[in-house]
């Protein structure tokens, strides 16, 4: 590729990057007396992988359903591909791929037929579907099961088929609601690989998850939701930088001794962002330098049964922002 061409491509790419495929202002979803989504703002740009993180009941799925044009917006504005879902739902849905939280595969049809019939729902022609179906079965590594019924397939296979199905109309935006929940590690990694390939191919991914490793693997940018609101926004690195420290030292003391140890250790903290958290079974020190914090503990004659120094992760950010108490 010659230099001017490259420049042109780059210019076009940056133009596209600036374009918001999904844009929401004050987006709200209320059911009777319950507010699921409470006035959130966000933009999803072309080609990026955008994540909604949050505990159960944070409003992720409701937001996804509004983006998928299967749930009307209560208040605020939402534009998807420049269109209004209230009046142009079917036209928007024609350009979306949807992977719902629970598989909605057609159990009365085979693997191949699931893809074929789904394409027909979009009004695609039989001739266009034939090569497309083969290509997608290959993509989902299901070619050998082409004529098998869906019911006996493993969870991972069903999930891959659901993702393949969502791609039948060559969507510009792929919506994934907890794509890997309930899958074993192997199946999750295969799925991540497939999703990464789609991203490389230019598909805009919008996903919800409560797996932090998944968010770190896949998302360029994400928002953390809690109680229907967005409580933080940024890239995984930005979020860690903004809401946690560089390292975490986990010190495990004898049962019952953790709280007392935490109290004495709080004197060992230096930086203004550093903090300490006492859990029933261990003490977490959020610090810039974990090894130094462990050494400091030894200096004041506190010897934990075991200690571990690790990098801060999104999980630390998540727990910091949405709390440790159980939400159901």
């Amino acid at each position: 590729m010659s230099a001017p061409e490259t420049a042109e491509v780059l210019a076009r790419n940056s133009d596209e990057a600036a374009e918001a495929l999904i844009s929401a202002q004050g987006l709200t979803k209320r059911f009777a007396d319950f507010t699921a989504v409470d006035g959130i703002d966000f933009d999803v740009r072309r080609g990026e992988a955008f994540g909604f993180l949050g505990p159960n009941g944070a409003g992720k799925s409701s937001t996804m359903r509004m983006i998928g044009c299967v749930a009307p917006v209560t208040a605020g504005t939402l534009r998807i591909l420049g269109r209004d879902p209230a009046t142009q739902g079917p036209a928007i849905r024609a350009r979306l791929g949807v992977v719902p939280q629970q598989d909605t595969l057609d159990l009365e049809l085979t693997v191949r037929e699931n893809l074929y019939v789904y394409g027909r729902y979009f009004g695609m022609s039989r001739a266009a579907l034939r090569p497309k179906v083969d290509e997608l079965m290959d993509f989902a590594q299901l070619s050998e099961r082409a004529n098998a019924k869906v019911e006996p397939l493993s969870g991972g296979m069903k999930r891959r088929l659901t993702i393949a199905r969502s791609l039948i109309n060559d969507p510009e935006i792929l919506l994934l609601d907890e794509p890997t929940t309930g899958l074993d590690p192997q199946a999750r990694h295969v799925l991540w690989d497939r999703l990464y390939r789609l991203k490389q191919a230019g598909v805009t991914l919008v996903l919800t998850t409560h797996y932090m490793d998944e968010a770190e693997q896949l998302c360029d940018r994400l928002v953390v939701m809690d109680g229907g609101r967005i409580v933080a926004e940024g890239s995984p690195q930005e979020l860690i930088a903004a809401h946690s420290t560089r390292e975490v030292a986990e010190l495990r003391f004898a049962p019952g001794a953790n709280a007392a140890a935490a109290e004495r250790l709080s004197a060992a903290l230096t930086g203004d962002r550093e903090r300490i958290e006492a859990l029933p079974d261990r003490v977490l020190l959020y610090v810039a330098d974990g090894e130094r914090a462990v050494a400091r503990s030894h200096e004041i004659d506190l010897f934990p049964l075991s200690s571990l120094v690790r990098r801060s992760t999104l999980e630390d950010v998540f727990l910091r922002l949405t709390g440790r108490s159980l939400v159901d």
Partner: peptide
């Protein structure tokens, strides 16, 4: 149970 109509309505069908 089969959520068949959910799947259909996620497409451009009404």
């Amino acid at each position: 149970y089969a959520k068949l109509y959910d799947a259909m309505l996620a497409t451009s069908l009404g």
